[in-house]
Design a protein around this nucleic acid. Structure first.
Lengths: 235, 235
DNA sequence: TAGTGGTCTAGACCACCGA
DNA sequence: CGGTGGTCTAGACCACTAG
């Protein structure tokens, strides 16, 4: 590989070259591009280097790879946005504001059907239900409405949610779970409007997230953000 | 590595083991974990295998790696959601519906200040402005309000946007650009409400995206979706 | 069934930066 | 300055699947 380019590693130089050839239509969308061995010969590097370059481009959605069939330029490129959704506290303090939260409601009760199904509970089973308001510099930042599966994490029932937010407790005690996230827009109810300090009916960004530990549903949460709130995605 | 586990590759087995040790608090948040050489010895595999396993976990936000300082369990785990935002046509047809779109407006005109800055244009420079309504089975699916930098892609001015949507033309002609995506909630204006078939003030999911080719801004677009529309993120 | 990508290894050199 | 991660190599075997 052209002796130590100033710009980073060899596999990245390979990626740049591949991208350049796609852009200038040397390799148009859908085209079959040379195999790893051929490219390694052309670029004068090891096959593993080409392999890593192409593997990452495939993960990024730029290439489509199949054994025996070879590697093609993706015909229908998909825009992928990586959203980082940090813990609320960090979201607030990272922007230099003071974090605070109020526990508005806490009960152990049977969840509505939609939540029950999402948590995989038997009908009639109770779960921990908590609603909190998170604040930045005292101003409303996020309303959190959370259900926790007590079959999965029974110790949650004895946590003082006024002292530590459910969010943080779960991150500490049940780390590294998998999650499904949904984003949508919702109109503020009377109650939500009062909490967030906006008119009823105002458009709120709503994030719903269900979290599993393996196959076991742990918690499902609905986060509401005041008008103007934005989630920013990288690449 | 424990002789060809049924579940996938060796580096994945290493990842599972690392995750297991984080979950059971063998390695709590913030803890320094053994180096690549030690782990390679323990797992009986090559250092490269450990390296790949840990590199991916670091990219996923589970580990934090620093030269000389070693590898630590991330203290403030971030939930990362990967949003796939396909081309509108695909989004519609993938769900078995018929795709259609109407060009509502097209002009070459100086953009408002916010757009002008985003596209990096000199004051007074005109850009291509297009507004379209995308339909699924005839029903409103998305309102697209787009500005295209004609300094970057002058040939855009001669494209028949009624025949091919700006979205698809750009994907075909200017592939593999980098982008910034923002999601928020917005209230429907009178015009938007009429287009999307919802009451004025209804909460709309708004996606704004600006796209660059290298450092050159290409286009910025605002996508509005009717109430109930959801974006789903994987992991 | 042959050829592609997927993975692994043993060894090596290097850049970075914390102790 | 020395140890860590970051990368690269040459070679090997394997899994999958298109032809």
């Amino acid at each position: 590989m052209a002796r130590r380019l100033p710009q980073g590693a060899a596999y990245q130089a390979v990626q740049r070259e591949i991208l350049a050839r796609i852009r200038d239509k040397t390799w148009p969308p859908g085209a079959l591009i040379p195999g790893e061995i051929d490219l390694a010969a052309e670029f004068g590097c090891a096959r593993a280097t080409i392999s890593r370059a192409m593997r990452e481009l495939a993960e990024a959605g730029v290439l489509e790879r199949k054994r025996r069939a070879g590697t093609r330029v993706a015909a229908n490129p998909v825009r992928r946005a990586m959203l980082d959704i940090p813990m609320v506290r960090q979201q607030v303090t990272d922007t230099g504001r003071a974090y605070g939260h109020d526990l508005l409601f806490r009960a152990v009760e049977p969840p509505p059907e939609a939540i029950r199904a999402r948590l995989g509970l038997r009908p009639g089973t109770a779960a921990l239900h908590a609603r909190s308001l998170h604040r930045a510099d005292g101003r409303p930042f996020q309303v959190e409405d959370r259900w926790i599966n007590l079959d999965a994490v029974p110790e949650a029932v004895s946590v003082d949610l006024a002292a530590i937010s459910a969010n943080e407790w779960l991150v500490r005690e049940v780390p590294l779970s998998t999650a499904e996230t949904m984003l949508s827009a919702a109109a503020a109810t009377e109650v939500e409007a009062a909490l967030l300090g906006c008119p009823p009916g105002a458009p709120l960004l709503e994030i719903e997230r269900t979290t599993w530990l393996g196959d076991l549903p742990i918690t499902t949460v609905r986060l509401l953000h005041p008008p103007g709130f934005r989630v920013v995605g990288r690449v």
